[in-house]
Design a protein around this nucleic acid. Structure first.
Length: 190
DNA sequence: ATTTTCAAT
């Protein structure tokens, strides 16, 4: 699958359907990945905003591409990317990474030592399966920040990744099972 | 509430 360009924003209805921190999230058969990339050009500089957008997993006739994988191939193939600068990537995911994606992320970070990653996820994907737990543990051990999306994260996403047309942020049920999921993640990561 | 969730029916 060739890398596709990200979207700028998603609609409010998509955000409110796909991003609530539900424990039982039937019908969320897609995954959204909102990303922001910051760049530090010189060691004595601060990180500055560099790029942002939204990926959705893709289903090709003969292959599937999880949202994380879409981002990574886009980032790899991106000509403007430079090994000379440092990058910090932030993801806001509707589902946390599966074991395969965790593996792919880890080898990406092995390859690009100038990139660091923070993952904020709305929900934990199959969190009761041990292989999914191990994937998250490995990410954490490799220095990836892994957290459940909190109120501020939702507000940030609304502002930057939702086509809100001036509508103020509403929390609705976005944080419904936040505490439960944060506890589950805490148990997984120790 | 021990679940179906990067679809399959």
């Amino acid at each position: 699958p060739n890398p596709q360009s990200p979207m700028d924003r998603i609609g409010p209805e998509t955000f409110f359907f796909h991003f609530p921190s539900l424990l039982y999230a039937s019908g969320r058969n897609l995954c959204y990945l909102c990303f922001q990339v910051e760049r530090k050009r010189y060691p004595w500089h601060n990180y500055e905003y560099w790029n942002s957008g939204v990926f959705q997993n893709k289903v090709y006739p003969q292959a599937r591409c999880h949202a994380e994988s879409c981002f990574l191939s886009w980032f790899r193939d991106w000509n403007l990317f430079s090994y000379k600068h440092k990058y910090h990537v932030t993801w806001y995911l509707s589902w946390s990474p599966c074991p395969n994606c965790a593996k792919e992320i880890l080898s990406f970070l092995q390859e690009y030592k100038n990139v660091t990653l923070s993952i904020f996820t709305a929900r934990l994907y199959y969190f009761w399966h041990s292989d999914f737990q191990v994937g998250l543990q490995r990410l954490c051990r490799a220095g990836v920040r892994v957290d459940i999306m909190c109120f501020e994260d939702y507000k940030y996403c609304w502002k930057n990744f939702v086509d809100h047309q001036g509508m103020p942020f509403q929390r609705r049920n976005l944080l419904k099972h936040y505490r439960h999921l944060a506890r589950e993640l805490g148990k997984i990561l120790g």
